[in-house]
Design a protein around this nucleic acid. Sequence first.
DNA 1: TGGCGGCCTGTTAACGTCAACAGGTACAGT
DNA 2: ACTGTACCTGTTGACGTTAACAGGCCGCCA
Lengths: 346, 346
Amino acid sequence: MATDSTASGPATRRGASQADVARIAGVSGQTVSRVANGARYVDAATRERVLSAMREVGYRPNRAARALRSGRFQSIGVIAFELSSVGTTHTLDAIAAAATQTGYAINLLPVLDATQDAVRAAFDQLGEQTVDGIIILVETHRLDGVAVPEGLPVVVVDSSAEYDYPIVDNDQALGARLATEHLLDLGHETVWHVAGPELSYSARRRRTSWQKTLEAHGRTVPPVLPGDWSTGAGYEAGLRLADNEEVTAVFTANDQMALGVLRALHERGRRVPDDVSVVGFDDMEEAAYFWPPLTTVHQSFDEVGRGAVDALIREIQSGEHEHQEALVRPRLVVRASTAPPRGTTA
Amino acid sequence: MATDSTASGPATRRGASQADVARIAGVSGQTVSRVANGARYVDAATRERVLSAMREVGYRPNRAARALRSGRFQSIGVIAFELSSVGTTHTLDAIAAAATQTGYAINLLPVLDATQDAVRAAFDQLGEQTVDGIIILVETHRLDGVAVPEGLPVVVVDSSAEYDYPIVDNDQALGARLATEHLLDLGHETVWHVAGPELSYSARRRRTSWQKTLEAHGRTVPPVLPGDWSTGAGYEAGLRLADNEEVTAVFTANDQMALGVLRALHERGRRVPDDVSVVGFDDMEEAAYFWPPLTTVHQSFDEVGRGAVDALIREIQSGEHEHQEALVRPRLVVRASTAPPRGTTA
DNA sequence: TGGCGGCCTGTTAACGTCAACAGGTACAGT
DNA sequence: ACTGTACCTGTTGACGTTAACAGGCCGCCA
């Protein structure tokens, strides 16, 4: 920041301004503005003249000036942590696409570490003064206690019921139920579960839904194997499962951990799906090429991303604070990692 | 855009302005500006007064106004396509981190489809008027013919020599050489290659480097198996390799395709690494848990991201157009998917 | 002693846009 | 003929910031 400008003046090549267009079209700047913003009450001929002048000089409204004047930025902030996770990435992709199509820019606010200070800093630095609204792509437990600027529209992508913002997410509970019931339907006595991190709401939802499904079917609920989304954690859990002869069916809270489970089972000589069936969650691109191809729960991150943008823009434009939950239905993709337990005639 | 605003006026709650701070501190607005921008020649006592006034009212400079006045945005545009690919994601993550730490915001400009019109549209909509410089994360062949606004600093993350911009990237050629030589060192006669898409520069570099390495060692160069980065393509290639008894060593242009190759080899009953050795490229998180754990080339996307941001900011601040290539050295990570060919005493 | 350069601060005028207001004209309804 | 309403356009000023300039003070050197 300690730049004592050698570069002087508003040096940057500036494009044509409203005034330039106005001069060429022989109208006032205000009329150019009206055309640019599609206001009512502009004579068709005038509009044509203005448009052609715009084209002539390659006019594009100056976003900074517009923002300064109107307080609107046509920009959405996305707070994200760990871009590298499968879900976050795909959702961000969809958000970016949807926003762009609606004429909004995307401002990425990365949260460098998980501390709340970091989140606050992200806000402080760019938040309020730059965006019209915010999509929170961070698991919300990380945000506990962080004040989102009052009055700024916010949409959360995380199925936590504990926030007063609109929520868009995949229906974690439904997904977990589909996975669990699939295994039960195949004839397995019960289903073991490798869970996501304790603090993650989505992990929690998957776990409780798995548990409830088992209970609803009158099955015993085996102890949960803890995990943290990582392939390594899946591997650890897999080793423990492999050594337990009773285990015939496993539901893993995401695909990456499922990969670890598969590897552990291979290592221990337990065949999939002959000895053990495995179901994942996410349907990442590679899942179809795991060994064996993974039966998993497909989440439509696209829909979630688009939904989040839509909800946010609605709120920005209406100025009204909604609090609704939009859950996107996942679907089960059956591949080769699941089968009836041994000694069953399917 | 055809919003005829029911929402009226600069409604948005605005924070404290420079003028507010100035009033409290008993100085002129200009002095506040000087403090905010770390200019020289501010008396220590005055600076302290201003800073405390800033804290008192929670002042944060209005970025829009600053941009309007100075033509600088403190913001970097990142043009990206296919966020979901391993490399792009990690690099974007690193870019975002580096930019944030330097006080720059990140403007994501997603390219929805691969057409050049889409890229142009991304620019037109938000590009020039919003950012001080651009990092191109798209494989540049997609950009052929698209005019990047003259005078806007640009850094390309793609090892193509055909552009006149600074380039930061992993050293693809070195990586491919490491992979190939590793297999030769193990005693394999030659190495087969599953390539990335024809149009991708990085894929091309990996391929030619593989070829040159073989030639340098006086080995025959087997025909290239075409691929497109996807696990599916790797699987197809893997099936063909599996049927060829001569194949004992494969270098795959990325890990995802390597996964497909592994699966094909398993299916055909060819054991890895006993019958066939496989090396990947990327070192994605899951690679260590493939079956068997994948020997691969580790790329430091972190370093690339940080390097790109540094180079861009240098150019923004100096105003000078550099054209240098910064290559980050990858390293080989040896795991369990490679071994000496059968009938060798290693 | 005068002059010069380094330090510190304030005043002024824009940057490009749009909301608010202030006209207008044209036409329908009374 | 008068009023009201829909349509169309222009003028003014302000959003919050900083570049350019102007001016002051102080100490040092010739």
